[in-house]
Design a protein around this nucleic acid. Structure first.
Lengths: 159, 159
DNA sequence: TGACAAAATTAGGTTTATCTAATAAATTTA
DNA sequence: TAAATTTATTAGATAAACCTAATTTTGTCA
């Protein structure tokens, strides 16, 4: 019971990376479609349906989703608020990676998907702030922005 | 065999986060002391000795350490090179977090410890580059550096 | 409405990584 | 050097996530 918390529960949600992934996915899907299905979650996370079933039972026990066998999947208020926390971190990171570091949008997203579970809200917020500052400076045409960009584009070390 | 690779093997070392942690720890310890012991690794990673024993057997099988029961623990060349990759990512991230984002050094280190396993070399290198640029600009007294710092210090949202 | 297809669950396994308790080896010390 | 202490290993369990195969439920459509 403790051997796990040490290595898994690093964020402020009290959830494992996996559980964070599930609620985040449910949240995102529920904005795209009327009804969220086991199949959709499985497709999105690239896992099989039985794994999703098992996870849904856990999420239900934790009070993060309303769910009856073969029925609809809906986040509870608590689930929604945690999902938003995770997604908030995701957004800050993704935007920072793409806008400031100049990463391809898909790569930025992938990196954010992984980092969102391990970086604290404080770091994510600060990276978001840095991005805000950067965006304003860029739109003003500040010279350092261009210099930074050319500095970042130098050939990466092969290692 | 595949269900694991999808979620664990995200970096360029081909190792799980855990294995990365072990070789990184061994590498760091071997620079601090003459002999690296099971006990030290356990203390550093905050786990128990039997877990370390089990991991060492795996690392040996993978050809990353030279090790005989009750004997010395030493990284092979291959192990050393992987450890350096991980530690390189760690350094870039830690320095970025502390110097640019202004995080407390211990917190910066903790965040780096976790993120080093999920962020690609490319991202880490770019964050390192951004830090380099930032350091030069700061030492030149560029105005935007001060502005950024004050922007980052605004009260963080309680969420 | 009855048969077929699609979706979801259950049952039973695997892997990774951890733990505790018990044992064995190595080291220190009296 | 023998006893006591420290260090390390083995044995046996547990928990989180995932899988495949088989079964059950739901939904569609002729």
């Amino acid at each position: 019971m403790d051997q796990n918390s040490r290595r898994e529960l690093i964020s402020d949600t009290g959830l494992t990376s996996n559980m964070e992934d599930y609620i985040e996915t449910i949240w995102v899907l529920s904005m795209q479609k009327k009804v969220v299905r086991v199949k959709d979650i499985a497709a999105d996370l690239d896992i099989k349906m039985p794994s999703v079933s098992a996870a849904l039972n856990k999420l239900k026990e934790m009070g993060l989703i309303d769910y009856e066998k073969y029925g609809f999947i809906e986040l509870t208020e608590k689930g929604k608020s945690l999902a938003q926390k995770v997604y908030g971190r995701h957004s800050c990171l993704k935007n920072f990676f793409s806008e400031v570091l100049g990463l391809d949008i898909n790569m930025a997203n992938d990196e954010a998907c992984r980092a969102e579970h391990v970086l604290s809200p404080e770091v994510c917020v600060k990276m978001g702030r840095l991005l805000d500052f950067y965006s304003v400076e860029r739109s003003r045409g500040s010279e350092w922005v261009a210099k930074l960009q050319s500095h970042l584009k130098k050939t990466k070390n092969p290692d």
